[in-house]
Amino acid sequence: MKELIRALLLLALLALVSGTSLGAETANGPLRVGLTPTFPHDQYQPLEQWRLYMERKLGRRVEFVRRDRYIETMDLLRLKKLDFAWVCDYPYVYFKKQVKLVAVPIHKGRPYYRSYLIVPATDTTTTSLAQLKGKVFAYTDPYSNTGYLTPRYELQQMGENPAYFFRKSFFAWSHRRVLEAVANGLADGGAVSSHVWDTLSIGKPELIAATRVVAKSQEYGFAPFVAQMSVSDEDFHAMQRLLLDMTTDADGRALLKDLNLDGFMIGNTQLFERVERVMRAVGEK
């Protein structure tokens, strides 16, 4: 009996999954755009405005699919459950062969961002990552460059084993939560994206004030907007055009201001060579 119920539940679940994912596979269905915590993706109102802006520009329905974990968004892309996604540079490089680069955001005039090493504002003594040995550390996501790969790379450069350097480490599954964990003292240190830090220093100054930046990493190519391999050229170019042209109208500029971006540009793989080197150095590929 139990087996039967379990089987039935599984069938129902499958039906549900295939039903919701139908859009991505149908040409005239809605465009599905995956959003990740590479930027503060949990602000509902500005993103809703962006979605409506996309619908207006593209003349078709657009659905935003928010997932906390990069790998989940990457899986949805590879499974063609998503058409586009804004992901971190590290998973982009990692799954480079399965996605197409649509555009790269421009922040402070350049398509780059960094990893910030942060500690609680109450900690006034720490000046480097090395001083956090034996402490509690908050990572963003195992597929985050600025929130995971970079600090581990730096530890490796220092000759430390990242697996044992900290007394305890955990994933907070977003840059913003890493900030909160460090601000609350849950973690003694954390690593976040410079873009999220800058954006929240406008939107959540009290949160930023509770943390202190100890070190800034080298620059990396900004977390890119990608498309799944089988997206039609028409859709690909429509989306690319939309992103690149956002600076040309008032609505687009207002949205870019909310996203704390200057605009988008057509990127190239050279932008991400540095993260690829780091990735290889850490031994993730």
């Binding site: 609680p120 109450t122 509690v136 007394r167 305890k168 609350n184 003292g185 849950l186 973690a187």
Partner: peptide, 12 residues
């Protein structure tokens, strides 16, 4: 394991 006030009762 975790506390609501990590500064008063830190992890571990």
């Amino acid at each position: 394991f975790v506390s609501s006030h990590p500064k008063a009762a830190p992890m571990l």
